[in-house]
């Protein structure tokens, strides 16, 4: 070994070894996160084969049970799609999400613009704080807040409002016809404040020179909103839209399970894919059916999120996630 090689031994080792030594500290930093992702995200991805098996616990551990369980191909899916549930849960998930996306986007944007237009900063901050409050509360708390209003025997609406109007009390938790509205309202109540603040913070970030130039040209406030504010925050609107659309096959279990208090009579209008999977897994212990529904959701969700991202990339490449 000559002196030069002794001093620079990196030549003796392969390039990747040198590279990883150089980045050792950075790899160490990534390590805990990689571990969490591997165990809680990647391992379950391989677990999707459960959906193609008649999964049963044999003696021994989970893996041996998994391998011993019989392959049944698509039979779990056949069972799932033969039930009327499959159609109902898909329809509910998609329709609610479509209504949520449009209503939340429009109302949050409108509130953000209003907050930006009103003259008093102090009042604006008070409104922002109040609107943001529901975002901080859990769905279980939200379900209690709703219950305080619509409890059949003690709720504020039945005992105070309807009574003073001389109307009969309504059995809210067994009347499916009201629930599509209640669900949409509660969802808006929870999310509008948060979305509104995201829009507002990007409105505040718009360069004031645009507005000054418009004023010199004699544009009024309304024209300024249409021609400056909206186009300027379009990228943010598109990104938020992408996030929503990509998750169109997902539903918030808290909203659809906790808020209607899992009332069976309301299932036709409140059961979404997530509620169905949760109920059949945790209550019935039906692994076959629930794993089929869960995989159906993952796969279709994967396609929608790729499609949504592709669409955004066409419109505004800078706003795409990848």
């Amino acid at each position: 070994m000559n002196e030069k090689e002794f001093l620079y031994p990196r030549r003796l080792s392969p390039a990747w070894w040198h590279e990883s030594r150089k980045n050792r500290a950075l790899f160490l930093m990534l390590f805990p996160g990689v571990l969490v992702l591997l165990f809680y995200n990647y391992l379950p991805m391989f677990g999707i084969i459960i959906a193609f098996k008649n999964f049963m616990f044999h003696d021994g551990n989970f893996f041996t049970s998994l391998f011993k369980s019989e392959w049944i191909g698509l039979r779990n899916f056949e069972f799932l799609f033969k039930t009327p549930d499959a159609y109902v849960i898909t329809r509910n998930t998609l329709l609610y999400n479509l209504v949520f996306i449009t209503s939340c986007t429009i109302i949050s944007l409108a509130f953000a613009i209003m907050l930006n237009e009103i003259r008093s900063q102090k009042l604006s901050r008070f409104y922002q704080g109040s609107m943001f409050l529901p975002y901080f509360l859990s769905w279980i708390v939200a379900s209690y807040l709703l219950y305080a209003f619509i409890s059949p025997d003690k709720g504020f609406i039945n005992t105070t409002i309807l009574k003073s109007l001389g109307k009969e009390p309504i059995a809210w938790y067994s009347e499916p016809k009201y629930w599509p509205y209640i669900i949409v309202l509660i969802n808006g109540w929870k999310w509008i404040g948060n979305n509104c603040i995201i829009y507002l913070s990007s409105i505040i970030g718009i360069d004031q020179e645009f507005y000054e130039a418009a004023r010199i040209d004699g544009a009024n406030r309304w024209q300024q909103i249409i021609h400056i504010t909206l186009p300027q925050i379009m990228p943010v609107i598109i990104v938020m839209f992408l996030i929503f659309v990509g998750r169109i096959f997902n539903s918030d279990l808290g909203l659809f399970y906790q808020v209607p208090r899992n009332a069976g009579m309301l299932y036709p209008v409140t059961q979404t894919i997530d509620v169905y999977v949760f109920n059949s897994l945790m209550r019935m212990g039906d692994i076959g059916m629930s794993s089929a529904a869960a995989l159906y959701q993952s796969v279709v969700g994967f396609i929608t999120i790729l499609a949504a991202n592709y669409a955004v990339r066409k419109i505004d490449p800078d706003s795409a996630i990848f």
Partner: peptide, 26 residues
Amino acid sequence: FTFFLIFTMLFNGGMVSTYLIGVNIL
């Protein structure tokens, strides 16, 4: 590593698989 991260936003094993692995392996 960015892709390794972002992929978890795109695809997941679903509630059932995650639950069974959470209980039996983790």
